[in-house]
Measured scan of single mutants.
Amino acid sequence: VTTYKLVINGKTLKGETTTKAVDAETAEKAFKQYANDNGVDAVWTYDDATKTFTVTEMV
Rank of each mutant, 00 (worst) to 15 (best):
V1T: 11
V1W: 14
V1R: 08
V1N: 09
V1P: 07
V1H: 10
V1Y: 14
T3W: 07
T3E: 13
T3H: 05
T3G: 02
Y4A: 02
Y4C: 04
Y4E: 02
Y4K: 02
K5I: 10
K5T: 13
L6E: 01
V7R: 04
V7W: 03
V7M: 04
N9A: 08
N9P: 04
K11D: 08
K11R: 12
L13T: 09
K14T: 09
K14Y: 10
K14G: 07
G15M: 15
G15H: 14
E16W: 13
E16M: 13
T17Y: 15
T18V: 08
T19W: 08
K20M: 13
K20A: 09
K20T: 13
A21W: 04
A21S: 04
V22G: 06
V22H: 10
V22M: 09
D23F: 03
D23H: 03
D23L: 03
D23Y: 03
A24P: 10
A24L: 09
A24G: 03
A24H: 09
A24Q: 11
E25T: 10
E25D: 08
A27G: 00
A27I: 02
A27H: 00
E28K: 12
K29G: 04
K29P: 01
F31E: 01
F31N: 00
F31V: 01
K32P: 01
K32W: 05
K32C: 06
Q33N: 06
Q33L: 11
Y34W: 15
Y34E: 03
A35C: 15
A35N: 04
A35S: 05
N36Y: 14
D37R: 09
D37C: 14
N38D: 06
N38L: 15
G39V: 12
V40Q: 06
V40N: 05
V40H: 06
D41P: 07
D41L: 10
A42V: 08
A42M: 14
A42R: 05
V43G: 03
V43C: 10
V43M: 09
V43P: 04
W44M: 08
T45H: 11
D47I: 03
D47N: 07
D48E: 13
D48L: 04
D48T: 06
A49W: 06
A49S: 09
A49L: 11
A49P: 05
A49Y: 09
T50H: 04
T50P: 00
K51E: 01
K51L: 06
F53P: 00
F53A: 00
F53K: 00
T54Y: 13
T54F: 12
V55T: 04
T56N: 08
T56M: 06
T56H: 08
E57K: 06
E57D: 10
E57T: 07
M58Y: 12
M58T: 12
V59T: 11
V59H: 10
